[in-house]
Computed example of a mutant assay.
Amino acid sequence: MRGTDTSHQGGRVVVVTGASGGVGRATARAFAARGDKVALLARGREGLAAAAEEVRRAGGEALVVGVDVSDAQAVDDAAQQVVDAFGHIDVWVNNAFTGVFAPFTEIGPDEFRRVTEVTYLGFVFGTRAALRHMLPRDRGTIVQVGSALAYRGIPLQSAYCGAKHAIQGFNESLRCELLHARSGVRTTMVQLPGLNTPQFDWVLNRMEGRARPVAPVYQPEVAAKAIVHAASHARRREYWVGGSTAATLLANAVAPGLLDRYLARTNVDAQQQTGRHDGPANLWEPADGPHGQDFGAHGRFDDEAVGNSPQQWVSRNRGWMGAAVTVGAGILAARKLAGQVRR
């Protein structure tokens, strides 16, 4: 039946971009545990090979496709490889990204363009490739992996925030078009919090200290669980993961000016820790390329990262209770901001 939820359905064909590490890696494993066939799209050979082995051990079937998502033709060719191998595509997860940690004035034009091409246009090209195969079947789900930063920009990540904002607008436009056409193809977006992934050791970093996620930090499996759920319940336009995401987005809706001042005061320090960045930068080349290293799904923050999110349960089971909890969190966050800004 077109557009139906498939929360208990296994054996689907799933494409995950950015599957060699971090959230993509954890998401590929989560789909595989359901018995799905998982196509792994990324640049890094070591990470893709290790991810494919994890998919097989989890109970899924793996297909490795090396691709740079900023290349539209390469993404189209990758989608065709998946269809040639598995027959069709049921779920496409856009997740691949890159970034630069630096003040805007210290990011070169080519660097800013590269972040935009991978993190924004990579989603556009992935969505276009998925639709080419989904629309004729009148079924399929596209999951855009977003962030709290799709709504709320923060210092030192102007290129990444700009790209995530663009994805948000693009996805809303596409969703309206699909609804107008009464299409059986669905699109949804999952907004994520700070996560314990390897990205903080492989992004281009011009800050004084080592990059880190803004606390509280969640394990990538929390994100993966939300993405798998969204893929099976795509009538929902959006999912928020983590209490920090809900509080940030609601505070931004209620008191964006106060949030500007709060983030200006706190988030430069909150995104770095003592020490110098000495790892690879994956802006132009995959991080595991010259080093032959598999980074896996987890970063270096296991000692503080949490493996569950009560707010995610509320988001999945929203109703009057979920609405009350969410609105309450927004009011409390706005009051907290006001108190801290006045100090």
Rank of each mutant, 00 (worst) to 15 (best):
P256M: 09
P256I: 07
G209S: 10
A85V: 04
G330Q: 01
V241Y: 00
M134L: 08
V124C: 06
E117P: 05
V325H: 04
V13P: 00
N94Y: 06
Q340W: 08
R318S: 14
I89Q: 02
Q157G: 11
M207W: 09
A334P: 04
H229C: 06
N196Y: 01
V83C: 06
Q311Y: 15
V254N: 05
M1V: 09
N308L: 08
V185W: 02
V69G: 02
V124G: 04
A181W: 07
V325F: 07
D138C: 07
D36G: 05
A270Q: 10
R261P: 06
G35N: 08
H298C: 03
A26S: 09
H133R: 11
H88L: 04
G242F: 03
F112Y: 14
S70R: 11
G66L: 05
A159I: 03
S232R: 13
S183F: 03
D294E: 10
F104G: 05
E111C: 04
G47S: 09
L63R: 04
R316D: 12
V145P: 00
L250P: 00
R210Q: 15
R206I: 09
G10R: 05
L174T: 06
T105A: 13
M189W: 04
A79M: 12
V82Q: 01
A32R: 01
D71Y: 07
M189E: 06
L63W: 05
N196P: 01
G194R: 00
A129G: 10
R276A: 14
L250Q: 12
L337Q: 02
A234P: 10
L149S: 10
V13I: 06
N282Y: 05
Y239E: 01
L332G: 08
G44L: 04
V217H: 05
L204S: 13
D84Y: 07
A246R: 03
A211D: 11
W202I: 14
D68N: 15
G87A: 06
A255E: 12
G319S: 13
A62T: 00
S244W: 05
R276M: 08
G3M: 10
G194E: 01
P220C: 06
I154Y: 02
D5L: 10
A150M: 11
T6W: 13
D302G: 13
A231W: 03
A39V: 01
A49K: 00
P155W: 08
F31C: 04
G243W: 02
A305F: 03
A42V: 07
A247L: 12
V115P: 01
Q191S: 13
R186G: 05
G153Q: 09
S70K: 07
R212A: 11
R182G: 09
D303W: 08
P280E: 09
R300F: 03
R152C: 13
G108P: 06
K37F: 03
V16H: 00
V100Y: 02
P290C: 07
L249K: 07
P155S: 13
Q272E: 14
R300E: 08
T248F: 02
A338Q: 12
R137N: 06
A163C: 12
Q219I: 04
F31L: 07
V64N: 00
L259E: 03
A230W: 03
Y120Q: 04
A166S: 15
G59I: 06
I89E: 03
R212S: 07
V83H: 03
